[in-house]
Write a protein that binds this DNA or RNA. Structure first.
Ligand SMILES: NC(=O)c1ccc[n+]([C@@H]2O[C@H](COP(=O)([O-])OP(=O)(O)OC[C@H]3O[C@@H](n4cnc5c(N)ncnc54)[C@H](O)[C@@H]3O)[C@@H](O)[C@H]2O)c1
Ligand SMILES: NC(=O)c1ccc[n+]([C@@H]2O[C@H](COP(=O)([O-])OP(=O)(O)OC[C@H]3O[C@@H](n4cnc5c(N)ncnc54)[C@H](O)[C@@H]3O)[C@@H](O)[C@H]2O)c1
Lengths: 210, 210
DNA sequence: CCAGTCATGTGAATTTTTTAACAAGTGGAA
DNA sequence: TTCCACTTGTTAAAAAATTCACATGACTGG
């Protein structure tokens, strides 16, 4: 039962399923039931079946799901069965950690260009990439086929970085800076905010305590 | 209309409200209506009023919300009107970036101890803190009053790190490693996963494209 | 081949979350 | 003082997401 609108929460869970399924595969599991997968992901098993049903039928009744096959299917459903080329703006603490983190490439998100406006950083080589000024984004994006922009500048520079990305016809943006940005609404933006999680933990602890 | 159960999504939005309100305050705004705040956060204004209603009445009819006061109220509601002491496990790429990121402290989450099992790292000083072996967690946690554990080890070490944290009576855990961990269920765990957001962007771009 | 067991996919029931609508309260102008 | 333009807090309605429940198909052992 394929469907057109898919809840945002479903996408988040699919990311979890992939994570758990990959660990299962590594441990030698070839088949898994929605019930067992559900326990490993701390969700309801109907939830899993429903989430998958948005995209197609991937299981075998009476048997379960073939792990490798399911991973492949989910990835294809999400559109991550290919390489997405990314541009990083802001090579500070966070940006450097991202560049050094090779999981991105392993999972199909390759950071192909790094931009920073600090004259001391421009020209430096980092992880095999030359750091360049964001004004070059517009010419480099089509050359390198950059599709996703990753903002890791200070918050008051995030909008400027976003403008460069929009100007370069980037298709989607991840913003690590704690500030909202305005972009044309056909460009999806995702905000990564650790404090969100810290607040959630603090709140849950506080709830339990008093 | 105070309430007992609060949706998880509400907590996430409160984090956004704080972010936007702090920027508003910096720009000199003293009062804001739910309508304007809603626009800045890309949500519905009823949503904001409802989210706030879970915790109390913070606005003035016909006027709006006093920005500073609202920030203070939200923080008190979430339990982040105090300092939470954190322990970091795993001082690699990610862990170092976190230690160098002084926003944590500014926002009330102070990383007071850093643990790593790498003999080459143990004993080193980093950001004014000595890196120690995780086996010392149990003795240091009560001494330093550590309440929240931050896991930044490789994924296959996350469970081990979690065990140390549980053993040290930590009250909540943030896990940056892409693997699920098992802990007693009175201990809240939050998973920080960038891929979640990358997948969401890739999916949204793919949707629009075809 | 049949009976019994297991586990998916899915419509229906339930629960939760979001949005709309409005009564009630505020402050300023006339 | 009275009106008017605003904006909150809250109830009611709508929409969305989650969970249940089971018919349907798959495999196993006898
Ligand atoms: N470091 C962390 O652990 C962490 C955690 C959560 C969020 N963040 C957020 O990530 C962002 C970056 O953090 P950081 O610790 O790397 O800060 P940082 O100061 O180390 O790095 C910021 C970098 O951005 C560059 N920059 C500034 N303006 C620019 C512009 N207009 N165009 C291109 N580059 C520009 C600076 O030159 C600098 O290299 C911040 O918004 C921060 O709040 C960081
Ligand atoms: N670097 C990033 O940008 C990034 C982004 C997203 C997620 N992550 C995740 O964060 C985690 C850390 O990433 P990283 O890039 O810092 O890796 P890293 O290899 O640089 O650092 C890992 C650190 O953990 C230490 N460690 C290993 N086992 C340990 C144990 N049992 N107890 C204590 N310390 C232990 C290692 O000695 C090392 O210092 C990984 O799980 C990674 O997937 C990193």
């Amino acid at each position: 039962m394929k469907s057109e609108h898919i809840p945002k929460a479903t996408i988040g869970r699919l990311a979890v399923y992939i994570q758990v399924l990959e660990n299962l595969l590594r441990d030698g599991n070839e088949v898994i039931s929605s019930e067992k997968l559900a326990r490993a992901c701390s969700v309801n098993s109907s939830q899993i079946r429903k989430d998958l049903a948005y995209f197609g039928e991937f299981g075998v009744r009476g048997v379960g799901y073939y792990v490798q096959e399911l991973i492949t299917s989910i990835k294809a459903s999400l559109g991550i069965d290919r390489v997405w080329k990314c541009a990083l703006i802001g090579v500070g603490n966070m940006g450097s950690a991202l560049l050094r983190h090779h999981d991105f490439e392993k999972r199909g998100f390759k950071i192909c260009a790094a931009f920073d406006c600090d004259p001391d950083k421009i020209g430096l080589e980092f992880e095999g990439m030359e750091i360049v000024c964001p004004t070059h984004l517009k010419e480099q994006a089509p050359e390198l086929n950059l599709e996703i922009g990753i903002i890791a500048t200070p918050p008051d520079r995030a909008q400027r970085a976003a403008n460069h990305l929009v100007d370069a016809n980037i298709k989607g943006i991840i913003n690590f800076a704690p500030s909202r940005i305005n972009v044309p609404k056909h460009i999806p933006v995702e905000y990564v905010d650790f404090f969100d999680h810290l607040y959630a933990i603090a709140f849950q602890i506080t709830l339990g305590t008093d």
